[in-house]
Structure formats: structure tokens, C-alpha cells
Design a protein around this nucleic acid. Structure first.
Lengths: 225, 225
DNA sequence: AAAATTATGTTTGGATCCAAAGTAGAGCTG
DNA sequence: CAGCTCTACTTTGGATCCAAACATAATTTT
């Protein structure tokens, strides 16, 4: 997994994500290894990893095929992330947050405030938000007392569009995206508020709802403005 | 994965679960392959699978080590299963259950009733319950509209004691176990009831609570009787 | 002519070989 | 004596070879 092994996995992830390998397509070890310019060995290893990640599935007795994802699957994966992050938030609220954790969360809240303070969104702000959003979620999940939740989320995030930082940003409509991020920021702040007050159920539900922001809020905000 | 590959994975799972390979122990490819009587290739493939399952983790740059699980991890894994099965139940309740699904669930409810009807538990009943319990959970999770939830649960279940059918049955205290299964049966029936009435939130919470039955109820029933 | 069986080709799984990276230990130098 | 470096050994990763399983097509038999 030093060099080639890891890169074969991520290269295949990319190719599958981009649709170069179509959903349902059977992947032969030799064909893929030739296309990637490596031998069969790292490809075989990568197939096992990708199978576990859920991007490939066994095609009968003979090899693997690219797994097909319906819209319902994506929606479901987002909900799965929602309940898992909700669980993490609830546990955190119930056990109480430490002074350090409080401070760390405050950092990402502040960064978000600063980013949105100027009242509009620039192209490059998108990456900044993506980063701080990732840190915010990671901080909560990582502080839930066990790596188990984080692992489950990480595995779930391999599905396309399921990850928290895969908010589809439409660069053409930065004003709409600005309002979306504004809403996300409010949700972040509410979550932290609930965590500070030990409101487990509230923190959980806020986090669950927050998961949907990449999906349905687009329509909502599109209608509204 | 026809023969040896699959068996290497499951044999390693067993050895890790039994504690033959101690938590934190580094596993060398050559050592394991010699102990299992196969070459390094299937072991290397198995290590990748077990890494994704969470039973192994990378030990620095050099190979893998058996992952250590604290009691908190096990508890957390049970909670993860709870929220995921809860999600499946809620979705099912919200979308409404079909006539066939209703009938299928009724089958497992009935089997459970019959098993517990005689008022006590025999040794061999344990396997019967384990089977029907597995079917009951699988039916609900498998009918939630997307394989995503089931996959997440399956991956989570690889952790020791996290799976729904890993209720630790104490053969010495079959009367206590009887009361535990009786409670589980009631919970199953309540879940089905909630599903039939489209009570999503109730179904979700019942399913969540049901996940704990292997953990805390033992103490409770132990104290009570 | 249809069905069954055999033969051939394709593909995956397992074993082994070679190279590269890392670790530990010994020896050398300051 | 301590610290550094070089070397030897251990271990993993990649490539290739061989065998087994499966699918397909062709031929034979009923």
C-alpha cells in the first residue's frame, strides 16, 4: 500500500466515480491491470478493498462488477450519515464536552462566520468552506468516545455524493450557494449550542437534518430565491 | 474467493475473535501464511479485506496489527447497529409495508411465539431463536428500499459482539435467557405493530432500544430475578 | 434434429521469485 | 563513551508462472 497499491485503489475509485467504468460493467483483472499499467497483483488487492467499500460487487462466481447506485441509494447513504453523525453528537452531548473540545469547535464556528461575514461568496471560498466543514464534522465524530462511529461514516462516505464535503457547489449560482452555506453555518452553531448545554436529543436531530443540506435544500432555496 | 481465499478470511476472523492473535499483535504475512498452510498471496488478500472490516489496522509502515477493542467500542458498535436498524425501520414505516412483507414478518413473529410458548428454554432452542432473529432483522433491513443500510450494518457487525445474533446465551441460566428472549419477542412484535401503523418514530426508537438487549438487559434481568 | 458430452479458451486463485523499503545492529569516528 | 553511519537482515509490494474452475462452442450420439 506504499505507492502503487494505494494509487491503484484511488485511481479505480476515480475511474468508477467518473463513470469511465460504467455501473454494472464487469471488470476483468487482466483488462484493468493493462489499462493501469500494473500487474494483476495490485489490482487483485484493490478489488478486495473496493468490494468492501461497496464500489464493486461480485459478479456471480466470476470476478467483480461496478456496483450500480440508484438515486434512492444516494439518498439513503446521506440518511445513514445523518443518523451516524447524529449518534456521535448525542453521545458527545450526553457525556459533556471538554474545555479543549469546546474551544476547537469554536474555531471552526468562527472561521465559518468570518468566511460568510462579507455577505457574498467568491469562487475560492468554496474550498475554504469545504475544509472547515470537514474539520467541524471530523471533530465531532472523532470526539464521540470511540472510533467505531467514525469508521462506519468513513465506509459510508465511499459511496458517491454521500460524504459531508461533497456538497455540490454550483459556481454559476454563488448567491444561492451563499444562502446554503449560511444555513449550514447556522446549523453548525446550533449543534454546538446543543452540545454545550448537554441537549443530546436536540444535537442528534440537528445533525441529522444537517446531513440533508446537500440534497433537498438546493430545491428549497432555488424556489425561494 | 472460491475456496481458500474466503476460508482464509473467515479463519483469520475466528482466530482474531478467539484471541489467538492478541489485540495489538503485529501480524506478519509470512508467519500467518505458514500457520494457515497457504502461500502469502491469499493472506495478503485477506489482510486487505480484514482491514476494511476493521479487524486489522495498519501498523505504521510495516504491515498490520490486530485492532484493539475496548468495552466502549463494543457498546458503541451496538449503538451504531441500533441507529442503523432504527433508520431502516423508520423508512419502512414511512413508506408503508406491503402485504407480502407483512406476511413475512408475521412468520418470524409466529415462530418466536411458538418457540417461547412452552414456557421454558431448552439448549437447542437457542439456535432456533438465533436463526429466526437473524431472519427478522434481515427482513426489515433488506426491505428498507436500499441495500446501503444493510451494507453499513454488515460492516459494523464484523466487530466482535456487535451483531444482532451474537446475543451471549448463558446455557447455565436458561431461565434468565428465557426471560430475555421473551422481552426480545415483545420488542419484535411492537416493532411490527409500529410498522403496520406507519409509526415511523416509534418503530425507530423501539428498534434502537432493541439493539441493547444483548448488553444491558442481562444485568437488569439478573438483578430482577 | 436435439441433447449431451467433450474439448478449447478465458479468467480467476495460489505459489514463487525478485526488487524495494525499512529496521536493527554492529562498527567506526568524534 | 556517545552518536553517527553503513551494512546486513527482515518484511512488504509487484510480476510472473502454473493450476483449477468455469463458460462456450463444437462434435458426436441417440
Amino acid at each position: 500500500m506504499t505507492n502503487s497499491d494505494k494509487s491503484v485503489v484511488s485511481r479505480l475509485r476515480k475511474l468508477i466515480g467518473e463513470g469511465t467504468y460504467r455501473p454494472g460493467e464487469r471488470l476483468g483483472e487482466v483488462a484493468v491491470s493493462e489499462q493501469l499499467g500494473v500487474s494483476r497483483t495490485p489490482v487483485r488487492l484493490a478489488f478486495r478493498t473496493l468490494e468492501q467499500e461497496g464500489l464493486l460487487q461480485r459478479a456471480g462466481k466470476r470476478g467483480f462488477m461496478v456496483r450500480e447506485f440508484t438515486e434512492a441509494d444516494v439518498l439513503c447513504a446521506v440518511e445513514v450519515r445523518g443518523v451516524l453523525e447524529g449518534l456521535a453528537a448525542r453521545r458527545l452531548a450526553e457525556q459533556g464536552i471538554s474545555r479543549e473540545l469546546d474551544g476547537e469547535l469554536e474555531v471552526w464556528i468562527q472561521r465559518g462566520r468570518e468566511l460568510l461575514a462579507k455577505g457574498y461568496l467568491e469562487e475560492r471560498d468554496v474550498d475554504v468552506w469545504s475544509e472547515l466543514n470537514r474539520h467541524f464534522h471530523q471533530t465531532i465524530v472523532g470526539s464521540s468516545g470511540s472510533p467505531v462511529i467514525g469508521d462506519a461514516i468513513a465506509r459510508n462516505n465511499h459511496l458517491p455524493f454521500a460524504a459531508a464535503d461533497s456538497i455540490v457547489i454550483d459556481s454559476e449560482a454563488l448567491d444561492r450557494e451563499y444562502r446554503k452555506l449560511q444555513l449550514a453555518q447556522v446549523q453548525h452553531e446550533l449543534v454546538v449550542q446543543a452540545l454545550r448545554h448537554g441537549e443530546g436529543a436536540r444535537a442528534e436531530m440537528l445533525m441529522r437534518e444537517h446531513a440533508f443540506i446537500g440534497l433537498r435544500y438546493g430545491e428549497l432555496l432555488g424556489l425561494g430565491g
